[in-house]
């Protein structure tokens, strides 16, 4: 059973009570089925009530859940024939980003994504999904390869951010991210990005200059983590909950701001509760997007991406005097 989060505590408690009751009924040989049915109805109501009224901070907890499905989980569920391809050809292979070729409903595609680990050992190997420059350079290499062979590119975004380390700076973290932004703008093939967990700042955006951008319902996309925002804005990282609210980082916020194309609804309580169901809805979303983008010419794809990002921003324009 996966770890519960604070906001779903009442659900967990009630579920425990029901289990307890069932146990008693079994052992004491008394009929409690009526009570159990009543409580189970109550549980359903409670789940609906809690899971459909999640605060931004609750969603942050879901997005960061240790058992939340990762890029490789979705790859396994959604694609066939996946072959992982490694390395940036300059320095190394960054396991915080995975990528490769696969087929999707018979169409060859390139898939790339941030990859965190679920257990500590894997997390260390994958640097908690926080890439170094070679990760972004590997991603770009695979995108260029996809372009050459006219394969659509599907990116899964799931990172706290690009790694803030000495070696990362020495090898040009800024340049690696910046170059991806510019080069992705010019890709002659369809690009689809989906935020599946945390979309942390430039390190996320470096896989995000796409024709279609989607977010799983409980994922977040932001310029800085809620903790970081709180410590910069109010000099107090413990105000992260308030920052999560103020910074407008949920899928609903980004949809409202017209930055993302759509929200992919999640299984009640979060994607980790049923990856198969979650992968199915993600697959449907990809099918729809690809059908639309496959019809566009190279020029139209680039134009489409240009227009998509060109219009982002809110300001007031006064008439020239």
């Amino acid at each position: 059973m996966s770890k519960s989060m604070a906001f779903e505590e009442p659900i967990v408690k009630l579920r425990e009570k029901i289990d307890e009751l069932k146990e008693i009924a079994k052992n004491a040989d008394v009929d409690m089925s009526e009570e159990i049915v009543t409580l189970e109805t109550r549980l359903k109501q409670l789940e609906t009530q809690i899971y459909s009224n999640m605060e931004p901070w609750d969603r942050v907890q879901v997005a960061r859940h240790a058992q939340r499905p990762t890029t490789l989980d979705y790859i396994e569920e959604i694609f066939e024939d996946f072959i992982e391809l490694h390395g940036d050809r300059f320095f190394g292979d960054d396991e915080a980003i995975v990528g490769g070729i696969a087929s999707f409903n018979g169409q060859p595609i390139t898939v790339i994504g941030h990859q965190r680990g679920k257990a500590t050992k894997e997390n260390i190997r994958r640097n908690f999904g926080m890439p170094h420059p070679e990760g972004y350079r590997k991603a770009l290499r695979l995108m260029k390869q996809a372009e050459k062979f006219k394969r659509p590119i599907i990116c899964f975004i799931d990172t706290k951010g690009a790694y803030p380390g000495k070696a990362a700076e020495e090898r040009g973290q800024s340049e690696a991210i910046a170059k991806n932004l510019v080069e992705m703008a010019g890709l002659k093939v369809p690009v689809i990005s989906i935020v599946i967990g945390e979309g942390g700042s430039g390190g996320a955006l470096a896989l995000g200059v796409a024709n279609k951008i989607y977010m799983l319902e409980n994922s977040t996309y932001s310029v800085i983590s809620p903790e970081g925002a709180a410590s910069i804005l109010w000099k107090d990282a413990s105000l992260a909950k308030q920052a999560a609210e103020a910074m407008k980082i949920t899928s609903y916020d980004l949809k409202k701001m017209d930055i993302i194309d759509d929200i992919v609804p999640e299984v009640a309580g979060g994607a980790h509760r049923d990856i198969h169901v979650q992968a199915t809805s993600l697959k449907e979303c990809l099918e729809k997007a690809l059908k639309e983008l496959n019809a566009l010419s190279e020029e139209e794809l680039i134009e489409d991406r240009y227009n998509k990002f060109r219009k982002i921003g809110q300001f007031i324009e006064e008439d020239e005097v």
């Binding site: 992705m184 430039g202 240009y306």
Partner: peptide, 26 residues
Amino acid sequence: GARMQEGVLSLMQMAKTSVALKRHSD
């Protein structure tokens, strides 16, 4: 860097300027 008070809109300015630079470069 990016301005905190405009949140993800600030982040997206990185992409907006990049698509324009690509056109200029091309």
